[in-house]
Amino acid sequence: MSRIALITGATSGIGKATAEAFANSEINLILCGRRQEVLGELKTYFSSKVKVITLTFDVRNKESVFLAIASLPEEWKNIDILVNNAGNAHGFSPIQDGDVDDWDAMIDGNVQGLLYVSKAVIPQMVERQTGHIVNLSSVAGKQTYANGAVYCASKAAVEALSEGMRYDLTAHGIKITNIAPGAVETDFSLVRFKGDAERAKKVYEGFEPIQPEDVADAILYSINTPARVTIADIVLYAKAQAAPTVIYRK
C-alpha cells in the first residue's frame, strides 16, 4: 500500500485542502472529523484517486479518539503521516472578560486533542522507526496579541509540543514539522466571532489572505523532502501581512 496519512479536522479549510493535495500525490487517506455526512462526501470524492477511510470523532474526547484509531483495519494501522490540524478559536476579548467555556474549548481542542491523537498514533511509528508528524500551530503561537491571550497560549503550546516531539522522536526516525500560518481565509473567524458573518468578513477585507491550498502546499512540501531532510518550522504570512496583527489593507 502507498503511504497512509491521517488528517484531523479534515472536513473543511486546511484539513480538506491537505487531503486534496495528498490525494493528488497518491497518498491514501484517513480523514477524521466530527461531521459524518461531510466525511462521507469526501470519501466518495477522493476514492476515485486513492484509498480512503473515515473516522468520526471529536479530538477533545479522549475515549473517542483512542477507540476510533484503534478500530482501524489492520492494513491501515501503520500510519506514515499524521497531520494534527483540528483546532479552534473561540471569542475575542480581554482576558478579564473571557468566557471560561471558550477557554476550555481552545485548550481542549488545540492542545489536549493534539496530544490524544498523537498518543494514539506515535507508538506504531516508534515501533517501525519511521513516520512524520505535522502540527498546525499559528503565528499567534509565536507572538501574543491583545484579546487573544488564551488562543495564543494554546498555539504556543503547539509550538512547544512540536519542539519537544522533535527532541523525543528524532532518535526513532520520526520527523516533526511545525506549520504556523498567518491570515488564512477559512471559517476560523466565523467560529471565533460566534457566527457573526459580517464581523468575520471584515477580517479578510482590503488584502489578499492566504488560502487553505497555500498551507496544504507547504505541508506537502515538508512531507516530500528527502529522507535526510527535516523541515522543522514553516511560517506563512499573507503578502500584505508583516506580523500577526499588522496587515496593510488597501
Rank of each mutant, 00 (worst) to 15 (best):
V59F: 01
A183E: 08
P226M: 08
A160M: 12
H90W: 10
V191Y: 05
F92A: 04
N178S: 13
T18S: 13
F66L: 14
Y116W: 04
H132F: 08
Y204I: 01
I176K: 14
D58L: 01
A157C: 04
P226W: 08
I69S: 09
K16F: 10
S189M: 13
L136W: 04
N24R: 15
D97P: 04
N147T: 00
A23M: 05
S64M: 04
V59I: 11
E205D: 12
L39Q: 05
I95Y: 07
L29Q: 00
F92C: 07
A183N: 06
I69C: 07
E26F: 12
P94M: 05
E198Q: 05
L39G: 06
Y248Q: 14
H90S: 01
V215K: 09
E26L: 13
L115Y: 10
A149T: 04
N135W: 04
V126M: 15
N85D: 05
T130G: 11
K175V: 07
G98V: 03
T186F: 03
P123Y: 14
A243N: 11
K202I: 05
Y221N: 08
R199C: 02
A183V: 02
D80P: 09
I69M: 09
G33Q: 09
D102T: 00
I53H: 12
S93Y: 02
A157N: 01
T170S: 15
K49G: 06
N28T: 03
V126Y: 15
I247Q: 14
F46M: 00
T245K: 15
N135D: 06
P123L: 14
K16Q: 14
E127T: 15
I69N: 09
R249M: 13
N147E: 03
D101T: 04
I69E: 08
F22M: 08
I247Y: 14
I122R: 10
K16W: 09
G33Y: 08
A197D: 05
A200Q: 08
I133D: 06
R60D: 00
N85W: 03
P209I: 10
E185W: 04
L72Q: 01
Q143C: 07
D196M: 11
G173Y: 00
A240R: 15
R166E: 14
A89H: 11
L236M: 13
A140Y: 10
I223S: 01
V184L: 11
V83W: 00
N28A: 07
I179H: 02
N88Y: 08
E198C: 00
K49W: 04
E74L: 13
F207K: 07
A157D: 03
S25G: 08
I174W: 04
I81H: 03
D108G: 10
L82N: 01
F46T: 00
G131F: 11
L114R: 03
N224I: 00
K155N: 05
D196P: 15
D196G: 13
K155D: 03
A197Q: 04
I133G: 07
N110Y: 09
A243Q: 10
A149Y: 01
P123F: 14
Y221Q: 06
G148Y: 09
A200G: 13
V158P: 06
L161H: 06
L236P: 11
K202Q: 07
G9M: 10
T8C: 10
V191H: 10
Y116L: 00
Q112N: 11
A216V: 09
D80H: 12
R34W: 00
V246D: 05
I210P: 06
